[in-house]
Simulated assay, not measured.
Amino acid sequence: MDLAALLERIKRLEYHQSLLLEMNQSTKHALYRFIIERGIGEKEAQKLFELCDELSMELEEQKAEGFVHFHPLFTKFTMKLHTGGLPAEDVIAACITQGLYLPLMTELKKYL
């Protein structure tokens, strides 16, 4: 194993440790648990959070414009997750359990 790979593993362990500390304070950190179980690094997790932030804003804009069907958001969500190898149903369930992005995840869950 080369030095760069070893340093990346150390960074991931440090990130997971910080999440474990958060989980210790509450048992409802299902998304953090999912991140750790899947071995997702900080950069990948940040991309997931950015995706959820972006789609949450799009959902609010579409609702304000009178949209009632949000299947295109679901498609966008699943396509982005697919590139990272994450199952949409697991991410949606974890976010709902943890109480993250509830309006978005509630709408996306309808299309599972």
Rank of each mutant, 00 (worst) to 15 (best):
M1I: 08
D2E: 13
L3Q: 14
L3M: 13
L3V: 12
A4F: 10
A5C: 01
L6H: 10
L7H: 09
E8V: 06
E8Y: 03
I10T: 11
I10M: 12
I10N: 05
L13E: 11
E14D: 01
Y15G: 02
Y15A: 04
H16P: 05
H16I: 10
S18Y: 03
S18V: 04
L19C: 06
L19N: 00
L20G: 11
L20T: 13
L21Q: 15
E22C: 09
E22Y: 05
E22G: 13
N24A: 13
N24S: 12
S26M: 09
T27N: 08
H29M: 14
H29C: 10
H29G: 05
A30L: 13
L31M: 12
L31I: 08
L31G: 02
L31V: 13
Y32P: 01
F34T: 02
K43L: 02
K43F: 07
E44K: 06
K47P: 00
K47H: 10
E50K: 15
L51D: 03
E54F: 13
S56C: 09
M57K: 14
M57V: 15
E58G: 00
L59T: 04
L59D: 01
L59G: 00
E60V: 09
Q62F: 04
F67Y: 13
V68G: 00
V68S: 09
H69Q: 15
H69D: 12
H71V: 15
P72S: 09
L73N: 00
F77V: 03
K80Q: 15
L81P: 02
L81I: 11
L81K: 06
G85D: 03
G85P: 02
E89P: 02
E89Y: 08
V91M: 07
A93R: 14
I96M: 11
I96S: 02
T97F: 07
Q98I: 03
G99L: 06
L100S: 08
L100R: 15
L100D: 08
L100T: 09
L102Y: 12
E107A: 07
K110R: 15
Y111K: 08
Y111P: 07
L112C: 14
